[in-house]
Simulated scan of single mutants.
Amino acid sequence: MRKNAAARRVGGGSAVDTTAGRILDLIRVRQLNIGDVLPTERELSELTGASRNTVREALRTIRTYGLIEPKPRVGAVLANGQSMAIQNFFAAHMDISRSSFADIQGFRRIIEVGIGDHIVLHASNEQIEALDEINGQIVASRSIEEAAANDFDFHMALIGLSDNRMLADMYSFLSPVILRIMTIGKEMRPMLADTRRAHGEIVAALRSRDRVAYAYLMSRHLDFALRFLPEEQASDGQ
């Protein structure tokens, strides 16, 4: 909800909202990176055609959502707060019911199965072998949290093979929820070997350039964790 509220506010019709949108457009056009300094208020006023007071209010709006932060004697700089703000939103809504779990895994299935064609056609043998090396780290995990993180690294590496930065950013934003789901399925150590084996089968399908096998194995893998939802969470609060 906070993300949608941010979009509505920045995209609204007031002078401040319009100016905030123009500043965000400027950030995109100039391809500013985290830590880069924004133009001064006076420069932004000239660039956006808004008064300095309006620019100041627009910057406050943008700062509210963690996109920029003030630095003494430097000015406003592009911050990494966007991902943190979204992650905090998800972290605050982490009650995993069976229906919400199914929704998340369904979303992941659309993405992770869907990128299979691209990976089969374009991933190099070296990239696929590197994916297998990441998979090997799972059984060496020393805690549930580390196992979940290693599992997530495997799936993030798969997303990386899609060559789609937006998907990578989206998975980073969703990481608290995905990690929570992965943790549920790793409360018993035997699961580590099962996870590695399932990942290994997916890697083998990629080595064989077998799209059908990849799609089947990935769908089965994402469905498998549903059985590890505690029964008291499976009733959706009823």
Rank of each mutant, 00 (worst) to 15 (best):
M1F: 09
A7K: 12
G11L: 08
G12P: 11
A15I: 04
I23A: 01
L24F: 08
R28H: 12
Q31V: 11
N33V: 08
G35S: 06
L38A: 03
S45Q: 05
S45T: 08
E46I: 07
T54C: 02
R56E: 01
T61G: 07
Y65G: 03
K71M: 09
A76P: 05
A79Y: 07
Q82I: 09
S83A: 11
N88W: 07
S97A: 08
S100F: 05
A102H: 02
D103V: 05
I104F: 01
F107R: 04
R109H: 02
I119D: 04
V120A: 05
L121W: 05
H122K: 15
N125H: 14
Q127S: 14
A130Q: 14
D132H: 07
N135M: 08
I138V: 14
V139Y: 09
I144W: 07
A147V: 06
D151W: 02
F154K: 11
G160T: 07
D163H: 09
M166C: 10
S175T: 08
I178Q: 13
I178H: 11
I181M: 00
I181E: 00
G185H: 07
E187K: 10
A193T: 13
T195M: 06
R197G: 12
V212T: 07
V212R: 08
Y216N: 04
S219H: 01
R227N: 06
L229V: 00
P230S: 04
P230Q: 03
